[in-house]
């Protein structure tokens, strides 16, 4: 069936099977491969994207359910002025290693900081608790998200 999803500001219309998962719509139909998948039970969070204003696990939503909605993926973070502070934060604080969980972590991190610019480390930890990272032990992810909170305009460091 035909669906139109606005992804990162652009409307995309595709004819898809109703069973197609949103993560596959983004990756296979639109060719945006920054959104990953890592499990079958909604536990890992590597597939997190925004639907409308909130992060959701795109493996647990059908593309047809996103018809008429706005989706934001990691590819939509960087703006005309360069990297989003959340992206900069992950570089600054060594918040990633293999990079596989990183897009999902950044999408949730961006949301957490938007909701609460004064976010505490404990709140960050809780906020990302539905997303698994096997490389970093989380400390630097927490610091990366806090960096973004503390640098709302980013910095020139990695421009």
């Amino acid at each position: 069936m035909e669906v139109t999803v606005n992804v990162n500001g652009t409307d995309y219309t595709r004819d898809v099977e109703p069973r197609m998962l949103l993560v596959h719509f983004i990756r296979e139909e639109l060719g945006m491969r920054g959104t990953h998948w890592g499990c079958d039970t909604s536990n890992c969070g590597t597939c997190v994207v925004w639907v409308d204003e909130e992060p959701v696990k795109s493996c647990t939503m059908l593309a047809v359910m996103a018809d008429g909605h706005r989706v934001k993926t990691v590819e939509g973070l960087e703006g005309p002025d360069g990297l989003d502070p959340i992206q900069q934060g992950f570089i600054e604080c060594h918040g990633l290693q293999c990079g596989f969980c990183t897009p999902g972590m950044m999408m949730t991190g961006r949301w957490l900081v938007d909701k609460n610019p004064d976010i505490s480390d404990e709140e960050i930890r809780e906020g990302i608790s539905g997303q698994i990272c096997r490389c970093t032990g989380y400390k630097n992810i927490v610091e990366a998200i806090r960096w973004a909170a503390e640098h709302p305009k980013g910095s020139e460091v990695n421009a």
Binding site: P18, D40, T41, S42, K57, C59, L62, V64
Partner: peptide, 20 residues
């Protein structure tokens, strides 16, 4: 969908139609 879709993926549930 956070119970139903994982069950559909694991093919424990196979509804014919989903009403959203």
């Amino acid at each position: 969908g956070h119970s139903l879709i994982p069950m559909m993926r694991l093919r424990i549930a196979s509804p014919t139609t989903l009403i959203d």
